[in-house]
């Protein structure tokens, strides 16, 4: 060790403490800056949702207007076009929940097969699934649409739900999860006691991997909730639209101006607010599942 290094080590405590305090301030400031950037559009959305159309244009965008119109806007939102927004909200829940539950169930069963059985074609199939993880999602949208169009299945909710149930990443996650979290001795004990394979899966494996199941469910749920390209191209009846497609169509109407377009602005804004609330709530309450899933994905 050189002399300089030794002296710096000896001198360390006091200057180190001062430096830490300064670093702490600098880093906290840096993070606050980025946090402000993150919340900026959300704050704008929140403020704008409380304004009527007149205040929207006549008062400053980053602060509240003269009237607090949030509840009036919400009433208008759910009343507009015979309550079509409520329909979109319901559709979105339906599509996301079915896609999430389906994806998680299929991924858990498939992951279990890959983790705990040896069978012909195992490595080939798993390789194919890993390749599928890398297939660009939206590169599949147009081909899916072409096939559905050929079979006359466009403009059907199933055309959105079924493709959203495919989660190759989910299969990968569940395989790793089951390999690490379920002991073979337990399965064999179940078999010795005469339990059938389905019973073993349901009563032994499944309870042990519930956190992984919830993670896959959440990821697929949110992906479907936020999906736009697939429902946009597959669905054409407004009655089947999810929120994203419905809101985007209103956004377009509002921007085109003309008859009634102006009055749409506050509807679009409050609709956007309503559409993000459920996912943010899910996210806040189930944080560890999200981040667990992302982390597992990253460590591979």
């Amino acid at each position: 060790m050189t002399e300089a290094a030794v002296s710096s080590l000896v001198a360390a405590p006091r200057s180190f403490k001062r430096a830490t305090r300064r670093t702490k301030r600098v880093t906290t400031a840096l993070l606050c800056l980025f946090l402000a950037y993150t919340f900026f559009p959300l704050f704008y959305l929140l403020v704008a949702s409380t304004k009527n159309n007149f205040d929207l244009f006549s008062t400053f965008g980053l602060w509240f207007g003269h009237d607090f119109s949030l509840f009036a806007n919400l009433r208008d939102l759910f009343a507009h076009s015979n309550g079509i927004f409520g329909r979109w909200l319901f559709n979105t829940f339906l599509y996301s929940l079915s896609a999430g539950v389906g994806a998680a169930l299929f991924a858990t069963a498939a992951g279990y097969a890959f983790a705990k059985f040896s069978f012909v074609g195992r490595e080939v199939l798993f390789g194919a699934i890993l390749v599928a993880v890398m297939i660009p999602q939206t590169a599949l949208v147009v081909p899916t649409f072409l096939l559905l169009a050929r079979e006359g299945l466009t403009d059907s909710p199933l055309g959105v739900i079924l493709p959203s149930m495919i989660s190759p990443l989910g299969v990968y996650l569940m395989r790793v999860y089951i390999e690490q979290g379920v002991e073979d001795a337990l399965l064999d004990a179940g078999r010795m006691d005469g339990a059938g394979e389905w019973r073993i899966f349901r009563s032994i494996v499944f309870p042990l991997v519930t956190p992984g199941f919830v993670t896959v469910l959440l990821l697929a749920f949110v992906a479907t909730w936020n999906n736009y390209f697939l429902p946009l191209i597959v669905l054409s009846s407004p009655d089947y639209f999810p929120l994203t497609v419905g809101l985007a169509s209103w956004y377009r109407l509002a921007s085109m101006g003309g008859g009634g377009g102006q009055a749409m602005f506050s509807l679009v804004l409050v609709g956007a607010l309503v559409s993000i609330v459920p996912v943010i709530i899910l996210f806040l309450f189930l944080q560890r599942f999200w981040q667990g899933g992302l982390a597992l994905g990253a460590v591979k």
Binding site: L35, Y44, L45, W225, Y228, A248, S275, I276, I280
Partner: peptide
């Protein structure tokens, strides 16, 4: 920092 991930890209683009 993670909250924008919960916001649909349609809503992000629109806002």
């Amino acid at each position: 920092f993670f909250i924008p991930y919960a916001v649909p890209s349609v809503v992000a683009a629109l806002v």
